[in-house]
Design a protein around this nucleic acid. Structure first.
Length: 596
DNA sequence: TTTAGGG
DNA sequence: CCCTAAA
């Protein structure tokens, strides 16, 4: 599992160093970095190298940060570290923000076994404020504020991992849980998570405890104290850059478990901390959800993995498996002339009782079994990122590139056939061409990267990818990404500025940072907004019962939409399909003469 | 390529 | 969201 990620959370020194380096190395870094929290977005190449994240990956992070909206609680001693993400209402701000994130850093890493991915990025404090969008110190996930410098020192992932790597082993003042007896560990555990555990495994306990301490990124950690003088962590200098440390192990399965568990821990620690401000919907409500459900099943979760692996994870795994046996090759097909398919084994892959869609494509008379792992690339022109996942990652990179090239040369026009099938995805260094793919990939990587995110994001989040069978036996991947409030606001704002209909403009100017929203998306969304607005205005409020499947859009926004609609001479989208426009009682000022 | 609409 | 016809 090369695509594992870990956020390095070692000692402060190192952190600072990397921070400094970042600043030095980075040329594009604008001035607006006040008191940034620096992360490096890096991903692990097949051969173990660390490569800088792509713009989109970074942007993704930005979005994560920005996405979640209202939440202005400020924890007293964390102002310095607060991470403000601003959903600028001024479109101009977007580019700036991004630039801030453009910094990257090529890192060396001991990737001998531990596949580590260091993720750091800068969260500049953009001077702009949109009350509703200021998101400081909220999203514990992306935007963690734990003024706990000592945490870094004392509790690093290293300690957590039994198989620590040389690189991280030289931590000073690391707490040694090794000397504790099982009972003591249990106590510590309890102190840490506020509950008992039945687990006897010492290393597990240690690990867990360490993770519990290290992983959480909220303020609670700063004052964290384990009684009995076992572990005492009180970091409140309030001058630290927060570090989100997340231990991951090389074993794929473990990785999964760990991320899972850490997410559980994460929730736990939050529970304990009253300071943790309203855990608003985190990116895609997943966190909150997981927060709840996890807390309910904490025991289970922590004891062992309870939740089913995420779909994506499974898929990843399945691909690995299938490749393992199938010995794959790049299966690319040009529109007109299908290139030879080399995918040999046609086994349906199962994983955790989940069956993967496999299909037999009949191309040029050749039965081509494919695990349907199509990544829907938004703009069709996008070249699919070709992924290989091979135990021996030596030649991988090269192969990938070749494959990619061949693919490109074969042509990407084949709208239907021209899709790369079932290759384990991996980032190929083709940022420009793969921008969107990257963005998407990033999301998937989050599964591995963010423990907190991993478990829930799949089930609960707004980034669903559903495969839908198509006539030709083809499968198209539907990518769903719920619109966040801020996005909607942006859209509305954009419309007000540039006018409805100028989607590409809006897209370019107001949604520059959202690579996944196309102008068409904007258009569609606007259409929906219109519907919603018109719908919400007239009716007899009987719709309240309707469980807002979709993100409830604040009335003010809707009214704004209505205004804009009028201005733009838009009205009800002519046919409100099912919705019987039982209006007539429509407010007088409604311009559009509605009949019916 | 971008828009507008239908599905 | 996706797909397409039009522009």
């Amino acid at each position: 599992m090369e695509t594992v990620v870990e956020v390095e959370g070692s000692d402060e020194e190192k952190f600072k160093d990397s921070l400094i380096n970042n600043f030095i190395c980075n040329t594009s870094l604008p001035k607006q970095v006040e008191d940034p929290v620096v992360y490096k977005l890096v991903r692990v190449e097949g051969d173990g190298r660390l490569v800088p994240a792509t713009d989109d990956e970074i942007i993704e992070v930005t979005d994560l940060l920005k996405d979640e909206t209202i939440n202005v609680d400020i924890v007293p001693n964390s102002e310095r570290n607060m991470c403000i993400s601003i959903e600028e209402s001024s479109n101009e701000a977007a580019p700036l923000e991004n630039q801030g994130f453009l910094q990257r850093q090529q890192d060396k890493a001991d990737t001998g076994k531990l596949n580590v991915m260091v993720q750091e990025s800068t969260f500049p404090l953009v001077g702009d404020s949109d009350a509703i969008n200021i998101n400081r110190d909220s999203d514990p996930g992306e935007c963690s504020n734990s003024p706990s410098p000592k945490m870094g020192n004392a509790l690093s992932p290293t300690t957590v991992c039994g198989n620590s790597k040389p690189d991280f082993s030289k931590l000073k003042g690391e707490i040694c849980l090794d000397n504790l007896s099982i009972r003591e560990l249990h106590e510590t555990f309890k102190a840490t998570f506020g509950r008992d555990t039945s687990v006897k495994d010492k290393s597990w306990l240690k690990r867990r405890i360490m993770m519990g301490l290290t992983n959480s990124c909220d303020v609670s950690m700063s004052n964290f104290t384990i009684k009995d003088g076992k572990v005492l962590v009180t970091g409140n200098e309030g001058n630290s850059k927060e570090v989100y440390a997340h231990a991951i192990f090389s074993d794929p399965l473990n990785v999964f478990d760990e991320t899972k568990e850490s997410s559980a821990i994460y929730s736990t620690s939050h529970q304990e901390d009253s300071q943790v401000v309203s855990l608003k919907r985190l990116r895609s409500h997943d966190l909150v959800d997981s927060y709840r459900s996890d807390s309910l099943n904490q025991e289970e979760l922590t004891a062992k993995r309870v939740r089913k692996p995420t779909r994506r994870y499974i898929e990843e795994l399945s691909e690995v498996e299938s490749q393992g046996r199938g010995r794959l090759t790049s299966s690319c097909q040009g529109s007109g002339q299908p290139s030879p398919q080399l995918y040999t084994t046609a086994k349906a892959v199962h994983s955790d009782s989940r069956t993967f869609v496999t299909r037999l494509d009949s191309l040029a008379g050749i039965k081509v079994p494919c695990v349907s792992r199509l990544r829907r690339s938004r703009p069709r022109k996008d070249v699919m990122s070709l992924m290989f996942h091979h135990s021996s990652m030596g030649a991988v990179t090269g192969i990938v590139k070749k494959a990619l090239h061949s693919y490109q040369s074969v042509g990407e026009s084949g709208s239907n056939y021209g899709r790369i099938m079932s290759i384990h995805k991996q980032h190929v260094e083709e940022p420009e061409k793969l921008r969107h793919c990257e963005a998407t990939d990033k999301i998937e990587h989050d599964q591995y990267m963010n423990g907190r995110d991993s478990g829930s994001s799949e089930d609960v989040c707004n980034d669903k990818v559903v495969t839908v069978p198509t006539a030709m036996g083809r499968i198209r991947r539907k990518h769903h990404r719920a619109w966040t409030l801020s996005e909607v606001m942006k859209l509305v704002d954009g419309v007000s500025r540039y006018g409805a209909g100028r989607w590409s403009e809006i897209k370019r100017l107001a949604f520059a940072s959202y690579s996944y929203r196309t102008s068409v998306d904007l258009k569609d969304k606007w259409r929906n907004l219109l519907k919603a607005a018109n719908f919400a205005s007239a009716p007899t409020d009987v719709m309240n019962s309707r469980k807002h499947a979709t993100t409830p859009i604040p009335a003010p926004i809707l009214s704004r939409v209505r205004e804009l609609a009028e201005i733009n001479g838009q009205s009800l989208p002519s046919n409100l399909s099912s919705v019987k426009v039982g209006l007539n009682g429509r407010s007088a000022n409604r311009s559009a003469p509605r009949y019916l």
